[in-house]
Write a protein that binds this DNA or RNA. Structure first.
Length: 368
DNA sequence: AAGGAAATAT
DNA sequence: GATATTTCCT
């Protein structure tokens, strides 16, 4: 299955050049109904099924094609994606993101400032739930446990800083009534006793930046531009992001997100494999194609789990782990037929390794 | 200012 | 309890 915005405009330079007016529209929601999808398969039943799915997701199905050549053609013309079945509906529902992403890459300068998805942390919204908030009260105990624990690692003094005469944090005490809840009573009790310590002088926190959607997408692009996660460092990263009109981020925001990004990558078993292949060289000018196999769902380790973003680079989920497929991928540059065939053969030889999944199972701690 | 870790919010 | 994000420290 290949996907592109249209195959009609004949030139094979990137023909995805959004108009200004189109862009702001895009940033909010890409209209599935203007996305043309070419479905290719040699089985007519599959074709029909796929067509149904596509239509259900409001895509325009141009044709149900079973010609390999169509794939090649589409690829040449900038297909964003190439999936093997079976494909679940989530994948389909999110196809449009590729187009948005591609457009962003092709015309970063045109993109209007992205409004950060900021979550207001209103102190007064404490009233939302009563689910186990005991922690607040316990945190003092924790400090003791921790210091003990830290002794083995690094000795770092707990952050206790008293600057001003402590002002008891009343934020939640005015929670009207509805606190017939034990946890709260407990914590309040503690506060009453020894509020002389700890950081009760709550300095207002910055609103949280939510690294989802466009922001995350651009973050990843910026990381790529800087030479990958190992080379990217906060300040240049911040500048990159500002260049694509993302404003309002601080260096700290970026640094911390980068930190998390690193942690995520380290958690990835196959990270080493990934490093062996210089993806950045492939990904930069255009995205690699991805082949999905069996029921593995591709996703980005960088996205939040609630974000369905099925085809990010070359990763997929497997047994709750993010795996990386090291198969060489097809960039959509102007390969001649022969080169394409060679690459395709390489791809076919490469099966997403069931050995890997087996290996992981074997290494799983035995359950009882 | 980078990197890392604690604190805090979700 | 786990994660995400901010804040602080070296």
């Amino acid at each position: 299955m290949s996907l592109r915005n249209t195959v009609e405009d004949g030139d094979n330079t990137l023909c995805l050049q959004p108009e200004d007016s189109e862009i702001s529209f895009l940033l909010n929601k890409f209209p599935a109904s203007t996305t043309n999808v070419l479905v290719v398969d040699n089985d007519i039943i599959t074709l029909l099924n796929m067509k149904t799915l596509m239509i259900r997701c409001s895509y325009q199905v141009m044709s149900d094609d079973n010609q390999i050549e169509s794939v090649m053609n589409a690829t040449k013309h900038g297909a964003c994606d190439y999936l093997l079945k079976p494909i679940n509906e989530d994948v389909i529902a999110n196809i449009w993101k590729h187009i948005v992403r591609k457009r962003m890459i092709s015309k970063p300068g045109l993109i209007p400032p992205v409004q950060l998805d900021v979550i207001e942390t209103n102190d007064l919204n404490q009233e939302k739930d009563d689910s186990m908030t005991v922690d607040q009260g316990n945190s003092e105990q924790n400090i003791d446990n921790m210091t003990e624990e830290k002794a083995t690692k690094k000795i770092r003094l707990p952050r206790i800083k008293e600057t001003q005469p402590i002002q008891p944090y009343l934020g939640q005490s005015n929670g009207s009534d509805k606190d017939n809840d034990v946890s709260r009573t407990v914590s309040q009790h503690n506060d009453g006793e020894q509020n002389i310590d700890k950081k009760h002088k709550k300095k207002p926190r910055k609103p949280r930046v939510s690294w989802t959607g466009d922001l995350q997408m651009k973050f990843l692009q910026a990381v790529d531009i800087l030479g990958g996660p190992e080379k990217a460092i906060p300040t240049p990263l911040l500048k990159c992001l500002q260049e694509v009109n993302i404003e309002g981020l601080t260096r700290d925001n970026v640094a911390s997100h980068l930190q998390k990004h690193h942690i995520n990558l380290k958690g990835n078993l196959i990270y080493q494999q990934r490093r062996e292949f210089d993806w950045s060289s492939v990904c930069r000018p255009s995205l690699p194609l991805l082949v999905l196999n069996n029921s593995l769902t591709a996703t980005s380790s960088f996205m939040n789990s609630r974000d369905v973003y099925p085809v990010q680079e070359n990763q997929y989920h497997c047994n709750n782990q993010v795996m990386t497929n090291t198969m060489p991928s097809l960039p959509y540059t102007n390969y001649d037929q022969h080169q394409l065939q060679q690459l395709q053969q390489q791809q076919q030889q490469y099966q997403i390794p069931h050995q890997l999944t087996d290996m992981i199972r074997t290494n799983e701690p035995g359950r009882t």
